[in-house]
Amino acid sequence: MKPGVASIFSPTLAARFDVLVEKYPVKRSALIPMLLYAQDEAGYLSEAVIAEIARRLSLTELEVRNVASYYSMLRFKPAGRYNIQVCTNICCMLKGAYDVLDRFREELHIDPNGTTPDGLFSLEEVECIGACCWGPAIQVNYDFHDEIKPDHVPGIVGGYRGKAQAEGKK
């Protein structure tokens, strides 16, 4: 990072990035973790995020976009504060993942790739998340929830809504 250029990231994340670029034998190896951590903080990979990461790694923005657009967890548009990812791959499907997905649709009144108007939730149908023996499985941001039945859905949604309220009050 050039001195004098302000970071768009929080001081904590900026400091983490300073460490990350030195962690690998080649600076560029920090690219994918940086994109992921930046997305965690900023919600998505905005032009500004891409520009700063490119600058930090001495890459062109094109190179950063080329890489970022390859990975399915990285997005270029905002998602909800809680991104609900329902695995519908074979193992989860056999155990009723589509019913779970449908239940989330009904509960949140959004389709996959949609975001609730309050920006709290987004819904995504995702590929295998590595919880095949415990399906249907979902991830809310990075949290796994195993063996979900459609009836669990309102509770999960309510739980995160409560969490958001609690955090909002702080």
Partner: peptide, 27 residues
């Protein structure tokens, strides 16, 4: 030991794609 995270790509499980990804490239 250096740890590394991916960002969503089955193909990166292929060993040479894994190396590409670890080097900060498309898998």
């Amino acid at each position: 030991i250096i740890t590394q995270t991916g960002a969503g790509a089955y193909e990166v499980g292929e060993e040479s794609a894994l190396m590409e990804s670890l080097e900060g490239k498309r898998g």
